Amino acid sequence: MKFKKVRWGIIGCGNVTEVKSGPAFQKVKNSELVAVMRRTGELAKDYAERHHVPKWYDNADSLINDPDVDAVYIATPPGSHKEYTLKAAQAGKPVYVEKPMALNFAECQEMIAACKAAGVPLFVAYYRRAMPRFLKIKELLENNAIGDVRFVSTAQYQKASDDVKDPEKLSWRVQPEISGGGLYYDLASHTLDLFDFLLGPIKDVNGFASNQGGFYRAEDIVTGTYMFESGIHGTGTWCFSVFENVDVNEIVGSKGKITFSTFGSEPIVLTTSKGAEQWSFEPPQHVHQPLVETIVEELTGDGNKCPSTGESGARTNWVMGEMTNL
């Protein structure tokens, strides 16, 4: 399946598509955004007019079956990812789906099977896999900068925000039937996927999930241990009802360690017996753009293959499900 130019349609042109993702489809070579959809038609029309998109819909089926749409970006919450992926696959169109890939691992497997049966590729929006900041970490690991990797650790803590304290304005991100779980599913997925990208698949997982703050039904703290197929160990604590915000990952090896954040812009720090080195990166204006470039290149046959697939995205859902016992 190759295209001269990939003409995209977006299902769910909400906040994430305003800057983070939407403009990337218009700026990448051999890529064009031709249609957007939102259930509220006036909002879809407004988005289309502001972003100079020629078509808008208030019905996903209409966008999926538009002959001018070659590929579909699903930017809705996870609760509808499987439904729209299956419909796009049935229409013979490549799919780029937001993360987490689905509500659970079983849904991910259904999505992979449907796309495979239809002969269409399935990509997942773990865009950090293509960002220069994290490619630098991969380069350091491949160059043996810290020797043999022994273990990784994650500490991610946040204050409880107002949109999870007010039951009248409860964010969809902490409603499991829409998001798959709590903020752990929304945020930890990025870190766990990064470790999969940097160090390979995880094979064994154990964890505990609880709700300590009582602001909503979903878990607000998860602690876990895991082991990669390579034998590297991992530990993590994610808590979303504490007094401060913390975001620190470490990859520790026989000769040094790499320290970095998942969401911040702090420098990457390499520490060895020789001292510390660091590298700073400005985040791309449209953080999805480097990954979208790889997708378009794969679909047009112009070079790179996308490093974030349905198979890799499903692995992250599996890890999260195992760690929360869901």
Rank of each mutant, 00 (worst) to 15 (best):
E297N: 09
S80C: 13
V19A: 11
V149S: 05
D220C: 01
G207Y: 05
M323C: 09
V6P: 08
M131S: 09
S21G: 11
D163K: 02
K138E: 04
V34Y: 13
E311Y: 10
T40G: 04
F208K: 07
T324R: 01
N30D: 08
V296E: 05
T237N: 07
S308E: 02
G92R: 03
P23I: 12
D196S: 10
G147W: 10
V287E: 10
T154A: 14
D58K: 03
F151K: 15
Q158F: 12
R7K: 15
G79D: 09
G181A: 00
D196M: 06
Y226Q: 02
Y47T: 15
P307G: 03
R150I: 07
E311H: 12
E177R: 06
A314T: 06
Y96P: 04
L198P: 02
N317Q: 14
S241D: 09
G182W: 01
G236W: 10
F134E: 07
V36S: 04
V36I: 05
I11P: 15
Y127M: 05
I112H: 01
F151R: 11
K55N: 00
F25K: 07
T225C: 09
N30R: 15
E139V: 08
G303P: 10
L299E: 09
A88M: 02
G14T: 06
K305R: 10
Y216D: 03
P176F: 09
K159E: 11
K4N: 07
P284N: 07
S265T: 14
S312F: 04
K87R: 12
R50C: 03
K93Y: 08
D46K: 15
V248P: 10
V34T: 13
I202G: 04
M37D: 08
T85E: 08
T294E: 03
I178P: 09
W172E: 07
F260Y: 15
C115L: 04
N59D: 14
S265Y: 10
R129Q: 02
F215H: 09
A218Q: 00
N143P: 00
V287C: 05
D58I: 01
R129Y: 08
W56I: 00
L187V: 12
G181F: 06
K169H: 00
V36Q: 13
N206S: 07
